[in-house]
Nucleic acid binder design. Structure first.
Lengths: 199, 199
DNA sequence: GAAGTAACCTACTGATAGTAAGGTAAGAGT
DNA sequence: ACTCTTACCTTACTATCAGTAGGTTACTTC
């Protein structure tokens, strides 16, 4: 079997197995056996266990990007681009659960049980946000408040990454940028005259 | 030394060491040595390596929540709550880099090098978003566009978590909720008459 | 001072990441 | 036909590390 094809096969098995059993709980022997090949082959192609995981993540992320790229070609307005891109994203995760699992729970490195527990710990931040929003904002459906709380957590996490990369950035600046994006949407719940969300 | 104090000490060392060297690259012997205690003690208190990691993550997340909770008490308007909370979040990550590293790169399970590479792969999504925004939206500073792209990635990832939890949810609904929050902020770049962001 | 308990240890086992050394087979040049 | 190279593949090992068995010390309680 030619190299490219074998590599492909190994990566596919790796994506599935890491997603299913977790990175730590998966042994190279397991993967080798599933592929129907011996362990040193894996090491020849991917150098290390981490290397194989990286290849698996890269594959998953490439697939995701291609899906969204395909979706937005042809869109004309900014709003349409955003809308189509989002839709493609959420469809991708529903259809390619193994790839998604690898990207999402970069925790699935830990195994399903621990991942769940970590997610539960994390949930406290979302719950707290939901509580605050319910107290200080009205006019949105319960479910949408929850979704917004979740979005806020994600926005903060990635904004923090941006902040890390920018020497001159301050907590104040990061806060301002985040407010600029998020606040308009939330405020529109309360002030529908300013342009209600497209419910 | 009483149990509570030892536990505390072990968790502190674990947070630092996992954040610094990565979960996989850190051995229980390493941690035991740093604490100045034998390995079976770690197992007695935390049951497994995963258990210790979980305790470390829990500790980090609790610290984060307490910081934000403290920040928002006393705020009166919804906007103020959001603003103070965000500020506390970004300050926390600047001040408690070890805890932050554990929460952020749940990848630091992999070790610093691989984490960086994963982040680079991930960056492609953000770059793509930046490109699209620059093409379809105008009126915002370059830097703010980048920040918005980052926020969009984070928002999608967490919104996907919400979607996973809700049986009845569809890609279309997830898209709508995300649009409702995000779009107002972005649109305000182009239509400053509708209420410009607080630059 | 006996009996219990809680913190702690040394010394092991089993599994697994990673490697060394080599085998087989197919095509290329002579 | 016959070597040479290249690429795919193997068996059989080592070193390391998660997790454990069983024992020691020291302090409290009766």
């Amino acid at each position: 079997m030619p190299r490219a094809e074998r590599e492909r096969q190994m990566i596919d098995v790796a994506v599935t197995t890491f997603a299913e059993r977790g990175y730590v709980a998966t042994s190279m022997d397991d993967i080798a056996e599933r592929v129907g090949v011996s362990k040193p082959m894996l090491y020849e192609y991917f150098h290390s266990k981490e290397g194989l995981l990286l290849a698996a993540i890269r594959e998953a992320r490439t697939a995701l990007r291609q899906a969204t790229e395909r979706a937005v070609t042809g869109a004309t307005t900014g709003k349409e681009v955003l809308e189509r891109g989002l839709l493609a994203y959420f469809r991708f995760m529903a259809e390619r659960q193994d790839a998604w699992s690898l990207l999402r729970h970069e925790l699935s490195f830990l195994g399903p049980t621990a991942s769940e527990e970590v997610e539960a710990i994390r949930q406290q931040q979302t719950d707290f946000n939901t509580l605050l929003m319910r107290a200080h904002l009205s006019g949105a459906a319960e479910e949408e408040v929850e979704a917004a709380a979740e979005i806020l957590v994600g926005a903060c996490e990635r904004m923090a990454v941006w902040y890390e990369r920018h020497e001159h950035a301050t907590p104040e600046l990061a806060t301002q940028y985040t407010m600029n994006i998020i606040w308009h949407g939330m405020a529109s719940w309360q002030e529908p005259d300013r342009g209600a969300p497209t419910h």
